[in-house]
Write a protein that binds this DNA or RNA. Structure first.
Length: 583
RNA sequence: GCACCCGUAGCUCAGCUGGAUAGAGCGCUGCCCUCCGAAGGCAGAGGCCAGGGGUUCGAAUCCCUUCGGGUGCGCCA
């Protein structure tokens, strides 16, 4: 059980014994570490509810807590705060029993499906895709740690208008006429008619043409309808687009270390759409409005009615709201999740509100709770969506290459690893570069926009990914030396304020994992890791370990170092950050 | 127009299920490598938590309001 929860239960029992609600016993890590390790503010709340004197209540609770040998200090401060310290013995015992492999255990027997609202086929991944990949990946690791069964789905955008735009563009360019020949009966060529690079230029061209020319847009819409209706040549061409794209995307996600259980897309539920629509029509939930088939999702208490979810456009095509709805049906059928998280840009909040309401109205979501885990956009220094200096969209690969080059430069400057192989140096630089990017992204609160400052991607000091890696590498190096010298690694024990502080934090690991899940907030994990590294650095600069002559003390300290390393490694793994052997 | 998000140190950001003296990183000023890795540690300066009102014993946090910024509002994703 997490330490704070254990203490809350003890305090809760004390409140209950006084005839007060057990929930007043909530114990938290103290806001004022200089005054106490833990605090309980329940007496104040209880007094408010019972209209009595908070100090008097606090006195009674304190008297009961003092009887418990766990506490080395129980004090009443100010209007009725209970300040609590645990005895070093109690802390040492819990440290020895700490199982760092265990998470917050919030997900026993539960399944969560994480939808990454994946990139669109044919569009190269740019820095805008960074957040969904990195945040979603962190969440899937966190939920797994906390005992959930996790199924992640990249959920590619492979079924909408952009597919029709591509098809129509290829038709006009005339580079692959066979797919447009209605008399051709197949089979279609195995070789894709376009390369990844060609695809990447094809889409912007098609998109621009449709924007400029209504006739082109109309053609793209028709192509979309025909594709969705199953026209063989279009399907064959579309399959090539998806395949070519997937190979590129797998490489991109691979370089970020992001993996998915499912590589599905909007098209995956194609077969479910017609029956779903029939069902919704039959139950009177879908209706024709302005030529389109819609599900009305406005509620009486909407100040301004939420627009309906459009299932079928007036010219016959379906939209991503349609596929999202059908995907819910598929997921309930196949995975029956307790929770579905959509890790998608917060600008799509309105869309998900529509989809969720429609799903609730039609009773499609089973036991699943649907939640849009929105995130803010990444802006440039000017506060507008991030662009390169030339004004273009920055590709993810370019960003990674830049961060890696910075790391490489730093290694050279510090004259580190001059005698290591070029391969190892490159590998270290890669890990450091990725850590820089991921930590910068994850350490911001998920919901707000943030400024993506290239300068900050080239600095490795302070609250950064490399700082955390450095802290871990330093411990690794120390433990290596200890092994070489044959030193024993013992059980951690408190011998100084620095060690006490470190151990208190280590014991709050489960609480941190639980809180981060609860808020779906990777930045809380970043905070935890940074504080841990900082607490360790303070300890490290204050106390010598290897040169400690008292063998028992040295062993205890080595044990503490090993534990810190294990926890740090674990948190960094949740953030998707790898630690080099040396750096 | 309506809705949602945001406004905290010079800069970039935490803190928001109300609690005691509002934190961190960068930058700035000073210290600390004859000893385990200085990508480090320590200390200092720097804030009417956008403004105003309210609820409360107690507000950066909750409610109302004004101002300022961002985003979204039927056939794109």
């Amino acid at each position: 059980m997490p330490l704070a929860a254990e203490l809350s239960r003890i305090a809760g029992q004390a409140f209950a014994a006084e005839g007060l609600a057990e929930s007043f016993g909530r114990v938290q890590i103290a806001d004022r570490p200089d005054l106490a390790q833990f605090q309980c503010n329940g007496a104040l709340a209880a007094a408010k509810a019972a209209k009595s004197n908070p100090r008097a209540i606090a006195e009674k609770i304190a008297a009961r807590l003092k009887a418990n040998a766990l506490f080395s200090k129980v004090e009443i401060a100010g209007p009725g705060f209970l300040n609590l310290d645990l005895s070093d013995e109690a802390l040492n015992t819990r440290t020895a029993a700490l199982d760092i492999a265990r998470g917050a255990n919030t997900g026993a027997g539960k399944t969560v499906l994480i939808d990454f609202g994946g990139p669109n086929v044919a569009k190269p991944m740019h820095v805008g895709h960074l957040r969904s990949s990195i945040i979603g990946d962190c969440l899937q690791r966190l939920y797994r740690t906390n005992g959930w069964k996790v199924i992640s789905d990249v959920h590619l955008g492979d079924w909408g208008l952009q597919m029709g735009q591509l098809i129509s563009e290829v038709e006009i360019e005339g580079t692959a006429p066979i797919y447009f020949d209605v008399n051709f009966v197949g089979p279609y060529p195995e070789e894709p008619p376009v390369t990844m690079d060609e695809l990447e230029t094809l889409y912007p061209r098609a998109s621009a043409a449709c924007k400029a020319d209504p006739a082109r847009l109309e053609a793209a819409r028709r192509a979309t309808v025909d594709l969705q209706a199953g026209r063989p040549g279009y399907r064959a061409l579309w399959r090539h687009f998806v395949k070519v794209s997937e190979i590129g995307l797998q490489r991109e996600f691979g370089s970020l270390g992001v993996t998915f259980d499912l590589w599905k897309g909007e098209s995956s539920v194609d077969a479910l759409i017609a029956p779903m629509i029939e069902d919704l029509k039959a139950r009177g939930l879908a209706e024709i409005s302005e030529g389109a088939l819609v599900v009305s999702v406005a509620k009486d208490d909407d100040k301004k009615p939420l627009p309906p979810l459009i299932l079928v456009k007036s010219e016959g095509g379906v939209l991503y709201g349609t596929t999202d709805l059908a995907t819910i049906i598929e997921r309930v059928r196949e995975q029956d999740p307790d929770l579905i998280l959509y890790v998608v840009d917060h600008r799509q909040h309105g869309h998900f509100e529509q989809v969720f309401r429609a799903a609730a109205k039609a009773g499609l979501s089973g036991k699943a709770q649907l939640e849009h885990v929105g995130y803010g956009t990444m802006n440039g220094a000017d506060g507008k969506p991030f662009k390169t200096r030339a004004g273009g969209v920055m590709k993810l690969q370019d960003l990674i290459a830049m961060a890696t080059a910075e790391a490489q430069k730093r290694l050279a400057e510090q004259n580190i690893g001059a005698d290591w192989s070029a391969e190892e140096r490159a590998e270290i630089a890669r890990k450091v570069g990725i850590a820089t990017i991921k930590f910068a992204d994850l350490s911001h609160m998920r919901t707000t926009d943030y400024i993506f400052d290239l300068e900050r991607f080239s600095t490795f000091e302070g609250k950064t990914g490399p700082y955390l890696q450095y802290a871990a590498v330093r411990i690794q190096s120390m433990l290596r030396r200890a092994r070489e010298q044959g030193f024993a690694v013992g059980t951690p024990a408190i011998h100084s304020p620095e060690e006490r502080r470190l151990i208190l934090q280590l014991l709050s690991l489960e609480d941190a994992l639980g809180a981060a899940e609860d808020k779906r907030a990777p930045n809380m994990l970043c905070e935890f890791a940074f504080e841990l590294a900082q607490n360790f650095s303070r300890f490290y600069s204050e106390h010598h370990v290897l040169s400690e002559s008292d063998a028992a003390l040295r062993a205890a300290r080595l044990g503490l170092c090993a534990l810190v390393l294990a926890v740090l490694t674990r948190i960094l793994a949740l953030l998707g950050i790898e630690i080099p052997e040396r750096m």
